[in-house]
Design a protein around this nucleic acid. Sequence first.
DNA 1: TACCGATATGTCGAGTGGTGCATAACCAAA
DNA 2: TTTGGTTATGCACCACTCGACATATCGGTA
Lengths: 117, 117
Amino acid sequence: MKKLRTRFKLWLSSKDAEGVFGDGKWRLLKNIDTEGSLKAASHSLRISYRKAWGDLKKAQQCLNVPLVEKQRGGIQGGRTALTEQGKKWVNAYTRFRSDIEKAVDKAYEKHIKELVK
Amino acid sequence: MKKLRTRFKLWLSSKDAEGVFGDGKWRLLKNIDTEGSLKAASHSLRISYRKAWGDLKKAQQCLNVPLVEKQRGGIQGGRTALTEQGKKWVNAYTRFRSDIEKAVDKAYEKHIKELVK
DNA sequence: TACCGATATGTCGAGTGGTGCATAACCAAA
DNA sequence: TTTGGTTATGCACCACTCGACATATCGGTA
């Protein structure tokens, strides 16, 4: 039997939209925070700017919360930064996801591991 | 703010295959157990027989474990039933998944809920 | 032995989500 | 006022997945 590892995807959905917020958008926001722009964030995540931009738009529309503050023009061409609410979401989701990750590892040890050896 | 619900997908992967075992294959095995055939199971899950058959093959190949015992011919044309090992996998994964589900709900209450109101 | 219904497996087309490209709009600084 | 780099947005294309078909095989039972 090959060695196995657990995988999971986590997200939030509303009644009318499925991917409101989840791992992808969480990573995107985190990278926007460290990189300072949407373009740089998408690049460091190796996803297209087109997708990153669409994801961000969707998250903000669905949550109806301003997660980032964007600026066009200027010496660097523009920038994107997290708002206070954006930071709160990142932090909350980080803790949320971390709890799940631990639970997955624990549950694997408890229920699956014995089957795999 | 709209009401949100948590969503997650869970699966196991090996070094050379991604979807070794997960929610979909777990549901398939459960239905095979109750329905008695791969055809009936795929029908009750509303997935094509083609997909169910492929999924099952993949799971058995990747895990290298005989999860089901199949029979062709006979008065009913054939049948598929879980082996002892298949049942063990179903039961273990059921508990595994249940633990995660609880953890997700709990973590949502703890970390996310306050952001959404 | 003919039949029936399930397993077994390849193939092609539709739908989906993402990438790449093209093109505006924007604006601080030179 | 020109420039440069970023945000903003539509669109065509591409890869991947899944479903729908089309067959072939199998083997108790009538």
